[in-house]
């Protein structure tokens, strides 16, 4: 059995089976988040793509790569968004280096 199946993205709504009320609430919120607002759909799709990479969710990466194309972003813009997510992930790892330093200093003479 494959853990990630591309076809599962289209079956997302099946998760509603046991608690449709919760899924309905989630979808209403999720869809409202996608609409044009203070941020455009295109900006939101780029944020979605960046977050998808930070979370490393293959379904979200697929969905938001398509959403970026269909909202008018090009590969340069999408790649910059991915670098932003990666840079923040890298920075978040690196800043924890101080925790390691602190831990070592605490027990060192």
């Amino acid at each position: 059995m494959a853990y990630y199946d591309e076809e599962d993205l289209g079956r997302f709504s099946e998760i509603a089976k046991y608690r449709p009320d919760l899924f309905e609430k989630f979808m209403a919120w999720y869809q409202a988040c996608q609409e044009d607002g203070a941020l455009s759909r295109r900006e939101k799709a780029l944020i979605g793509l960046a977050v998808a990479h930070a979370l490393q969710c293959p379904y979200c990466i697929d969905a938001y790569a398509q959403a970026c194309l269909e909202s008018g972003s090009n590969m340069e813009q999408m790649t910059e968004a991915i670098h932003m997510a990666s840079a923040i992930r890298g920075g978040a790892a690196l800043i924890h280096g101080l925790q390691a330093h602190n831990s070592v200093h605490k027990v060192s003479m």
Binding site: S40, L69, E70, G72
Partner: peptide
């Protein structure tokens, strides 16, 4: 025209670009 198997973006937005 999209350069591939996807739908076009909103016309007004891509026209501005």
């Amino acid at each position: 025209n999209p350069v591939g198997a996807y739908l076009p973006p909103p016309q007004a937005s891509i026209e501005a670009d």
